[in-house]
Computed example of a mutant assay.
Amino acid sequence: MAPSGSGSIKRSCQRVLYWIPVVFITIIVAWSYYAYVVQLCIESVENIGEKIVCLLAYHLFFFMFTWAYWQTIFTKPMNPLKEFHLSYADKELLEREDRGESQQEILRRIAKDLPIYTRTMSGAIRYCDRCQLVKPDRCHHCSVCDKCILKMDHHCPWVNNCVGFSNYKFFMLFLLYSLMYCLFIAATDLQYFIKFWTNGLPDTQAKFHIMFLFFAASMFSVSLSSLFGYHCWLVGKNRSTLEAFRAPAFRHGADKNGFSLGFSKNFRQVFGDEKKYWPLPIFSSQGDGCSFPTCLVNQDPEQPSTPAGYNPSTKSAGETHQFPAKPLRESQSRLLNSGQSWSEAEGADDKDKRGTSNPAMTIENET
C-alpha cells in the first residue's frame, strides 16, 4: 500500500506544479489589467475621448485573448477512436507471440483496414505499447499526459495542456490575440512612458506601473511575434512542431511535405471553410483528427485510396468539398520515373505485384 500511496501523492504534487506557469500568466494579465485600466486610462489619461477609445479597444483585445486562452487550456485533447485500439483477443495474441514475424503479421492485419499511411523510420507499423493501439497518422504519445494525442503538436507548459487536433486553432488564436494585446498596450502606453523619463507625469505610483507595463508588453511582444510567426509557417506547410523536427515517414521514406496540400487547403484544415469562424475560438477544423489527405504519389497499396472517415465539407458554399487523396506534387514527379509508384495506365498484374511487397515491420514505440 505504501508505494501506491506515495505514487498518488507524487502525481498530485506534479499536477499542482504543472499549473504554476498558468498561474504566473494569470497574475501577469491581472496586473496588466489593473495597470492599464486604473493607473493609465483612469488616473493618467486626461482626454475623455482618448480614454473611452482606449478602454473599449483594450477590453476587446482582453476579451478575445482571455477567451482563446481559456479554450486552449480547458479543451481536452482528442484521443484515437476505438477502431485503432486492439481488441482483447488481439492483445492476448500479441502478448503470446515472440517479437518477430508473427507480431508483424498481427499488426499488419489490424492496420490493413485502417486509414494509416505513415510508418516508423524503420518501416514498421506505429504502435503504442502503453495505450495498446495502432497510432493514427500524426498521432503521438505524450509522456506528460500519458496518452496518445491526435495530431499532437507539443505539450505546452504555459497552458498545461497538449496542443493537438482539438485545440490547435485555439492555440493559434491565443498567440494572435496575446500578441495584439501586448502590441496595443505598448503602442498606447508609449507616449506616457516617454513622459515618465521627461518628468511629464506627476510623481505618483502610476509612473512605475506605466513604466513596467511598457517593458512587459514590449518583451512579451518580441517573444510572441517569433512564436506566432513560426506557427504561421507551420500552418502554411501543414506540419506540426514534432513533424518540423522529425519528418513523418511513409512507405517510400521520410517526407516533410507529405501532408502539405497548398497554403489555402492547409490553412482551412486548421481554421475551417467558414470565414466567420476564423477569428473566433470556436472549433471549426476539418476532419476527425484520425486521417489526413496526403500529397504522395506512391500510395500504400494495402490502404484505401482515400482516408476513411475524412469528409470535410464547404458549409458556406453549400456543397461537398473533398480534398484530393493523392494529388501529384512537382517535387515528387521523379517518383513516377523511379518505379516507386503505380499509375492507372499500368496493367492489373503490375499493381498486384507491387501490392505484395511490404517492408519488414516491428513494434517500435514512439514518444
Results as ranks from 00 to 15, higher is better:
176 L>A: 09
165 F>L: 09
173 L>A: 09
184 F>Y: 15
186 A>L: 01
163 V>P: 04
184 F>P: 07
174 F>I: 00
187 A>E: 00
174 F>T: 01
159 V>I: 13
177 Y>W: 13
190 L>D: 01
188 T>Y: 12
183 L>A: 08
187 A>P: 00
167 N>K: 11
185 I>C: 14
188 T>D: 02
164 G>K: 02
165 F>R: 08
179 L>P: 07
158 W>A: 04
160 N>W: 04
171 F>D: 03
168 Y>C: 02
176 L>S: 03
167 N>Q: 10
187 A>M: 01
158 W>Y: 13
158 W>R: 04
178 S>V: 04
169 K>G: 09
174 F>G: 03
174 F>Y: 10
185 I>S: 06
191 Q>N: 09
173 L>Y: 07
181 Y>I: 07
173 L>Q: 09
182 C>H: 00
157 P>R: 13
177 Y>A: 03
179 L>T: 09
162 C>K: 06
165 F>C: 06
161 N>Y: 04
177 Y>S: 06
158 W>D: 02
172 M>Q: 13
191 Q>V: 12
172 M>F: 14
159 V>M: 12
160 N>I: 01
168 Y>I: 02
172 M>I: 13
158 W>L: 08
157 P>M: 14
180 M>T: 03
171 F>G: 04
166 S>M: 07
174 F>L: 03
184 F>L: 06
190 L>H: 03
189 D>S: 15
185 I>L: 15
190 L>N: 00
190 L>A: 14
160 N>F: 07
161 N>S: 13
179 L>G: 11
182 C>W: 00
171 F>R: 06
191 Q>H: 06
179 L>N: 10
161 N>C: 09
164 G>A: 02
184 F>M: 07
191 Q>M: 12
161 N>D: 08
164 G>C: 02
181 Y>T: 08
173 L>I: 15
173 L>G: 11
157 P>D: 08
169 K>W: 09
169 K>M: 10
180 M>A: 11
167 N>R: 07
183 L>D: 00
184 F>C: 05
188 T>C: 07
166 S>N: 10
157 P>H: 11
188 T>M: 09
177 Y>D: 07
167 N>L: 12
176 L>R: 01
180 M>L: 15
170 F>T: 01
176 L>E: 02
169 K>F: 12
166 S>P: 01
168 Y>L: 04
158 W>F: 15
184 F>Q: 06
157 P>L: 11
182 C>M: 02
162 C>Q: 11
175 L>I: 12
174 F>P: 00
181 Y>Q: 13
178 S>L: 08
190 L>F: 14
178 S>G: 14
166 S>T: 02
187 A>Y: 03
160 N>M: 04
170 F>Y: 15
157 P>N: 11
183 L>W: 04
169 K>P: 05
166 S>Y: 02
179 L>I: 05
175 L>S: 10
177 Y>L: 03
175 L>T: 10
181 Y>S: 11
172 M>K: 08
172 M>T: 09
172 M>L: 13
178 S>Q: 10
163 V>Y: 03
162 C>F: 05
166 S>V: 01
179 L>D: 03
166 S>W: 01
182 C>L: 00
162 C>T: 12
191 Q>D: 10
188 T>V: 12
181 Y>P: 09
173 L>S: 08
169 K>H: 11
185 I>R: 04
183 L>K: 01
166 S>D: 05
178 S>R: 03
163 V>Q: 06
187 A>F: 03
171 F>N: 04
182 C>G: 00
159 V>R: 08
180 M>H: 02
157 P>T: 08
186 A>V: 01
191 Q>I: 14
167 N>I: 04
158 W>H: 05
